[in-house]
Computed example of a mutant assay.
Amino acid sequence: MKILALDTAMNGCAVAVWDAGGDEAVSAVEPMLCGHAERLVPLAQNILTEAHLDFSDIDLIATTVGPGAFTGLRIGLSAARAMGLALDVPVVGVTTLDVLAASYLARHQDPHNLLVLIETKRSDFYGQLFSPAGDILSEPFALPAEQISALYLVDSIVLIGDASQRFLSLLLQEQKAGVVVRTGFEVPDPAHLARLAYRQYASGGYLTPPKPLYLREADISQSRKTQRKIAE
């Protein structure tokens, strides 16, 4: 089974193609703050060409469902759903938190719990706690640093994600003693996204179509022109 994985939920545009019968994936991750919509499909075509495949060879589409940037998240989901309909193949969604955790745990063996923290572009953080074996120890959350510290910094812990450094800077000196920050895991790895999606598909534990994981409302404000009309 050949899986095409797409991610635009955070500060990057990422694509991978992986054959479930093998170990190696062909993938690319391009850091970017905007322009995901224009870049995603051409990048997918490039990856398929590099793998000597075409869209018609794909059996499953994988995509991240959040949490992440509101606009970027919807770009990836919309593209995945459209491809799934066009190719008549299933689409499986995986959280960004799960993908980041899997990427880290595939490369490191730590005796401590893993806390994945993602930027919200506000004062709080998206996150989730995992065991050293990858078991889920908390539901995904959107919390301020004070609550995260009280709930999860009760023992030594490893931090990853694009918000880990900001979180560390907000801690008191004594709170930092048991905290280890690992860099290099700021954007989901599409190869691990493909593997996780395949496991969900094989187990039957997935939603069709995948739905976005929103941990709070999007930042939406009225324009001054609209406000004036309402006032009138």
Rank of each mutant, 00 (worst) to 15 (best):
S203A: 13
V17I: 15
T71F: 02
G161K: 01
V17A: 13
E186K: 11
V91T: 09
T120H: 04
V181C: 11
Q173F: 05
D110Y: 04
K2H: 15
L153V: 10
A145V: 09
I157P: 05
A194W: 07
A102D: 05
D110P: 00
A133I: 02
D124C: 07
V181P: 06
L172P: 00
L114S: 08
W18D: 13
G72E: 07
G204E: 05
A25V: 02
L115I: 00
N46R: 09
T226L: 10
L40V: 03
E186S: 12
D19S: 13
I118A: 11
F70T: 07
Q147W: 01
L168Y: 12
H112P: 00
I220F: 13
S131W: 00
A197W: 03
A231F: 03
L117P: 10
A150P: 03
P144M: 09
L143P: 01
S164T: 02
I160K: 03
Y152D: 06
A79K: 07
I148E: 12
G68Q: 08
E30Q: 09
T71H: 06
A150H: 08
A145F: 00
L40D: 03
D135H: 01
I47Q: 04
P140I: 08
S221I: 13
N11D: 13
L170Y: 10
Q200L: 14
I75C: 01
S156K: 04
S27E: 06
T120M: 07
A14I: 05
K229E: 07
L117Y: 05
L213T: 12
F55P: 05
I157R: 12
S123G: 15
S138E: 11
D98Y: 07
I61L: 15
I160S: 11
S103N: 13
H112L: 01
